[in-house]
Amino acid sequence: MSKDTHNLENTILELEKCIQELKNNSEQDSSIEIKKLEEKKKTLQKEMYSNLPPYEIVKISRHHLRPPVSDYINLMVDDFVELHGDRSYGDDKCIITGLGKIGNKKVLIIGHQKGKTTKERIKLNFGMPNPEGYRKALHKMKLAEKFHLPIVTLIDTPGANPDIGAEERGQAHAIATNIAEMTKLKTPIICIVIGEGGSGGALGIGVGDKFSILEFAYCSVISPEGCAAILWKSKDNAEQAATALKFTAKDLYELGIVDEIIPEPTGAAHNNPEEMARTLKETIVRYIEELQAIPIDKLIENRHNKYRKIGCFLDGE
């Protein structure tokens, strides 16, 4: 953690302590003082969160209290019906799929599952899906296409599972198939990075008409640690790699990769999950309305063009 961020965080913690002490002291009325301190805390939090270096943002995106997909389903989806299974091998819990209503919009929801407790995290393989997860997602996406339901994907993965079984069951093929199919599915697709957008593992459910990101999420071709290990020959250089890769929400917006940065509450999403879910819900409803107004052939054409123009090179002709 950089020195400035560290100092700010310490000051905020001190303030919190003072506020708590004042609240616990019932002998005198300190409500005016408490209010003052809370205002100060909010200002400092804003300052701290507005100047975070990239690797600090990575840490927030991985914060153990950061709301996972299951929280957003609880907070913003009505009548959720979970659907299981890829119809060929298994049911990867690491990708959750189901039908539900967001506002007045019926949708298919797909999301990476990270879990909240250590036990859950282990069970969900820390959000690293197997090929079955991607195949399950595709199977449900075809269902959504058939019934003209918009697809909402919530991305939060360090990457696809890199192990022997995943390789032998065709991790690369599963991701490649999803990417190819998502470029042409005849229904609106909205992709939102809510935490970690880890490389191919993110893209396997991350191709669509809208690609947006929460303020303190990141999306990258490789993790900062992985990049540091290869290019700097040491994971200790992750901070430098995080800066070099330009993967924060702000960078991605400037590079023209994301459509929108979805603002987080003061102190980031984990500080106020309810507020975060409300903002996310409003954004999704707005996107669906916008996309449903476009004729489907035009939508697919726009989607193709959106990706077609990404690239930076010298033509030389």
């Binding site: 990417i179 190819a180 042409k184 191709v207 990258s220 071709v221 590079l255 193709h304 077609r308």
Partner: peptide, 23 residues
């Protein structure tokens, strides 16, 4: 795979090539 030195732009080439080949 996707080239690290061009970051997210490299990652998105996966979708770009894939979309063209689908057509």
């Amino acid at each position: 795979g996707a080239r690290m030195h061009e970051g997210i732009i490299s990652l998105m080439q996966m979708a770009k090539t894939s979309s063209a080949i689908s057509r």
